[in-house]
């Protein structure tokens, strides 16, 4: 006789059904490892000026530097290895994307739960804010904030949090409103448990699945938005370049045919975003109770 599956086992098994999603997950894991261990696996530390030589600048992919290092993906205008630049850039891009999404999830979750649980005026005020914010495109809100605050990693993360929290608040509120009417919440209320316990121990875990799906998609969106802002020169500073800033740095050379300075960081950005989206797509199907067999 077959043993009953735990929910987690079911999720893992369902997820593994799609080859495309599995390969997306594999690529994503690889990217995360590269980002984590960038200083160990990079051929060069691209921000150690002592290792750079201007004579090596703008070499095409595959050429060798003065001291015998091979630039597999070419070098930029400072004589930096593009591959190492991408490894370090991934750290910043992923770091900003993940950190901002996490903070935004926490804020959105709290706001959404409060709106749903307390209702009335609290609900009205929070949701009006959410409505108004969602009527402006994300890029415009980020631009307004960064234009007022100036460049910087912390400020970029702040702008991305402000852009994202409203999505989570809206999602969590609508899920929580449905959950709130269910019997287990009534039972908890009858046991006279304190509201904080009901909200965080009973309501919250049941609101998580849709939130996880949206948060995964949003990490990709946050990375793309950060890259866009950095490309425009209003995101991260030049001392800590993300993939977007690397692309910007190579843009002027692209017009003269030196494509690799922008092209390869662009490919890295693309692979990251597409692999996250593949994983998110499958997660959505797996966690959607309506699609369960």
């Amino acid at each position: 006789m077959q043993r009953e599956q735990t929910p987690l086992q079911r999720i893992v098994a369902d997820f593994a059904e799609s080859r495309l999603a599995l390969s997306g997950l594999a690529v994503l894991t690889l990217i995360l490892l590269v980002a984590l261990f960038a200083p160990l696996i990079s051929p060069q530390n691209p921000y150690d000026l002592a290792q750079l030589d201007v004579l090596d600048s703008r070499l095409p992919p595959g050429s060798r530097s003065g001291d015998g290092l091979t630039f597999w993906l070419g070098s930029d205008d400072q004589g930096r290895d593009i591959l190492s630049g991408i490894f370090y850039g991934l750290r910043i891009s992923l770091g900003v994307g993940v950190a901002s999404t996490l903070c935004a999830v926490i804020i959105g979750l709290t706001m959404g739960l409060c709106a749903a649980y307390f209702g009335g005026r609290t609900d009205g005020v929070i949701m009006r804010f959410v409505d108004i914010q969602l009527s402006f495109p994300a890029i415009l809100i980020a631009l307004i904030l960064l234009a007022l605050l100036g460049q910087g990693i912390g400020k970029t993360i702040f702008a991305l949090i402000m852009v994202q929290w409203a999505y989570y608040a809206r999602t969590v509120r609508s899920t929580a409103l449905v959950e709130r009417r269910k019997e287990y919440i009534e039972a908890a209320v009858c046991l006279a448990l304190p509201p904080s316990r009901i909200v965080f121990r009973h309501l919250l875990p049941n609101c998580l699945p849709p939130l996880i799906v949206i948060a995964t998609v949003q990490v990709a969106a946050a990375i793309a938005l950060e890259a866009t802002l950095s490309y425009l020169g209003i995101g991260v500073p030049i001392t800590e370049p993300s993939l977007g800033l690397l692309i910007k740095n190579g843009f002027d050379y692209m017009l003269s045919g030196k494509y690799w300075i922008s092209f390869f960081p662009g490919i890295a950005l693309l692979v990251t975003i597409v692999s996250i989206n593949l994983v998110a797509d499958q997660l959505r199907d797996v966690l959607n109770p309506r699609l369960q067999k």
């Binding site: 866009t228 692309i247 692209m254 975003i273 597409v274 989206n277």
Partner: peptide, 18 residues
């Protein structure tokens, strides 16, 4: 949907202009 606008723009320039 998933490609960032600026990246597509760069590719358009690379292909059709350069």
């Amino acid at each position: 949907f998933s490609l960032p606008t600026f990246w597509v723009g760069l590719m358009l320039i690379m292909l059709f202009a350069v």
